[in-house]
């Protein structure tokens, strides 16, 4: 049973920035993201999960009002080494409406770096557009 609904924000340039970013991911990364969205949709209380295992984080300071969903992909080499890639899907978590609006996404590099660059700055701009009631939202299809 799904408690939460997810939407993609279609910006005033008529682009689905989350969708564009999703298209750049590898298939295994797309699956991890799709499964995460499904898992969160069916989790009534996201905050009930132990903090270290949570897949969401409400951002602070200049990013206040934004929430990131976090996931990582792992690749094991034949020698047992693990390569991890960290990804963030950024959006607006509307708890009262039981919905999450995806704005865009990125891969994390180090503490502040992202690919594409300035993804959080971009998310702040998209959030401002959304709050000014510019653009549209489409329901995000859950697997």
């Amino acid at each position: 049973m799904a408690f939460w609904r997810f939407f993609d924000y279609i910006a005033e340039d008529n682009k689905n920035h989350l969708g564009i970013w999703y298209g750049t991911l590898g298939r295994d990364e797309q699956v991890i993201f799709d499964l995460l969205v499904r898992q969160l949709a069916e989790t009534e209380d996201w905050d009930a999960t132990k903090k270290s295992r949570r897949k969401h984080k409400e951002l602070e300071r200049e990013d206040i009002g934004l929430t990131q969903l976090m996931f990582q992909s792992l690749r094991l080499t034949t020698f047992g080494r693990v390569f991890r890639k960290q990804f963030r899907a950024i959006g607006i978590w509307q708890k009262e409406e039981w919905q999450f609006i995806f704005l865009n996404g990125c891969q994390k590099h180090g503490i502040f770096g992202t690919a594409p660059p300035d993804a959080f700055k971009h998310a702040r701009r998209l959030r401002a557009q959304f709050e000014a009631k510019r653009g549209n939202i489409n329901e995000h299809k859950i697997i």
């Binding site: 939407f7 590898g26 298939r27 295994d28 797309q30 699956v31 991890i32 799709d34 499964l35 009631k133 653009g135 549209n136 939202i137 489409n138 329901e139 299809k141 859950i142 697997i143």
Partner: peptide
């Protein structure tokens, strides 16, 4: 603002062999 709704679309995604392989493991 307009909204469009949709149903589960797992099967259409599984049409892609690479997605299928990744889904099975994931």
């Amino acid at each position: 603002m307009n909204t469009k709704s949709s149903n589960s679309h797992l099967w259409s995604k599984l049409d892609d062999r690479d997605y299928r392989k990744a889904f099975l493991i994931g």
